[in-house]
Design a protein around this nucleic acid. Sequence first.
DNA 1: GGTTATGTTCTATATTTCTAGAACATAGCA
DNA 2: TGCTATGTTCTAGAAATATAGAACATAACC
Lengths: 102, 102
Amino acid sequence: MSERDFTQPEIDSIQLHEVLFALSDPTRLAIARALTDGEEHSAGDLAGDVPKSTLSHHLKILREAGITSTRPEGMRCRVSLRRAELNRRFPGLLAAILKNAE
Amino acid sequence: MSERDFTQPEIDSIQLHEVLFALSDPTRLAIARALTDGEEHSAGDLAGDVPKSTLSHHLKILREAGITSTRPEGMRCRVSLRRAELNRRFPGLLAAILKNAE
DNA sequence: GGTTATGTTCTATATTTCTAGAACATAGCA
DNA sequence: TGCTATGTTCTAGAAATATAGAACATAACC
């Protein structure tokens, strides 16, 4: 395989309960919160003290829940929030959650 | 015991991720949605086709997450949303979730 | 007391999720 | 070709969660 696979779901196929579940884990909620600056972050940048395999697992769950987008760049990957898309699918949801996560 | 125990947590002790987890289950989300009319519902009224022991389990999780309040009344129990309290603790959160659960 | 209705708690099983080490893959660079 | 950095995937074990039958508790009514 010449390219890593960071497939993300169509925004319209995302279910509300999946989004809530993805953000119901403190580690993942912290990751989402760290992404609220709108910037792209590398995975390592988002790792607190969790092992990289665990971090990769959480990032996958966030990605598959439609919350984040991951883009390969060199030997890193760039993770960002799918803020606008999510807001179209679930108006006000992400903002309400992230605001209360402060 | 002369009275059933439906202890609910102090609103300020509730953590955001607990609320999200409680509502990340489709059955529980449906229950919360059914309570949006502001009325008190009996447990049986909220049961879809789930067995009563399973329903009781889900109601307990919602109650312990601070989302619902349960009050015994005769041989029934009356379940309602802790809407105002939750909105004080997490402004806009419940409204955003329930609106998108429609 | 006996009976019925409404729920809870107990118990057990199945499934899912979390965690993290080890191995593997990819990219950049000397 | 190595060598290092960054992540993913594989694998396994531990912990949490979901489901639901059975037994129990409570309340209302005869």
